[in-house]
Design a protein around this nucleic acid. Structure first.
Length: 271
DNA sequence: ATGGTAGGACACCTA
């Protein structure tokens, strides 16, 4: 018997302000699990009641006051929830859990990588140094347990657009934080050394332009279409045969009072 | 070369 599994990742840019959009996404797409970033609230302020009303009983939150913060919203029980800290900082940028699908656990890793500030210089800009150190720590972690890892999905706002077709202008963004060579090289090392598959690019050709984020600062974001692919879905190789579809739901960027990120939807079929 | 918008918290920080 075939068993379908749908995961969505979305930088919501304040879950309390946009709880209505979260409810809409859950109703329209009925994912098995929704991974949120930039919830911008403490654990106790997460809008659990509204989410439970939509039929999602299982939430795990790693929040903090005002900034950052990640969460998992699931139809299935969340086991072995972990909240990892990077670079010896207290920022809430990671949460992970197992969900049982088709009789075996799948490990979900949800990240919000630091944006890195405006100046792509580690000496002049500590936020850029923090971003690179964070990515290096991810690399070390996943390179170390590569051979023992299976049935894992890594998602989130990684704040780096690695391919030339992941940005509206490769040439104009080479010195812009999110697309500098030191960042894209770093992210590519996490991907390669960890043995990950870029699920979005395994279903959407790398020659095709693909964005998940359009700045609020552009008054006509859709027409100018100066986007970047900052949000990602990576999978371990054993999950590749089960992956059947990937979609960036661009219409959500045009919903009322939107997040500046569109949700990314990945569908699997086990069985 | 520059500034453009948004959210949270409370004087600017983060994005």
């Amino acid at each position: 018997m075939a068993s379908a599994f749908r995961i969505v990742t979305w930088n919501i840019n304040s879950v309390r302000l946009r709880i209505g959009l979260v409810e809409r996404l859950l109703k329209e797409f009925e994912p098995d699990i929704l991974c949120l970033q930039e919830i911008k609230c403490r654990d106790g302020e997460f809008p659990l009641a509204a989410i439970r009303k939509t039929g999602y009983e299982h939430c795990a939150v790693h929040g903090q006051k005002g900034y950052h913060g990640v969460a998992l919203v699931s139809r299935h029980p969340l086991e072995n929830v972990t909240r990892r800290h990077f670079c010896d900082q207290t920022d809430a940028r990671h949460i992970a859990a197992d969900v049982e699908i088709d009789g075996a656990p799948i490990n979900i890793e949800n990240y919000y990588v630091p944006a890195g500030g405006d100046v792509p210089d580690v000496k002049a800009n500590p936020k850029f140094a923090h971003k690179l150190a964070f990515v290096d720590e991810m690399q070390a972690r996943y390179a170390a347990d590569r051979t023992s890892r299976s049935r894992t999905i890594l998602v989130g706002d990684l704040n780096i657009a690695p391919l030339e077709t992941d940005v509206w202008s490769h040439k104009q963004l080479l010195k812009v934080v999110s697309h500098t060579p030191v960042e894209t090289d770093g992210l590519n090392r996490v991907l390669a050394d960890g043995g990950w598959v870029d699920a979005m690019r395994s279903h959407i050709p790398p020659e095709e332009r693909l964005y998940t984020w359009w700045s609020y600062r552009s008054p006509n974001w859709e027409k100018s279409d100066k986007g970047r692919r900052l949000d990602h879905v990576w999978i371990t190789e054993d999950l590749q045969p089960a992956l059947c579809a990937v979609d960036v739901h661009k219409p959500a960027r045009g919903w009322e009072k939107p997040s500046d990120h569109a949700p990314v939807i990945a569908d699997f079929d086990f069985g």
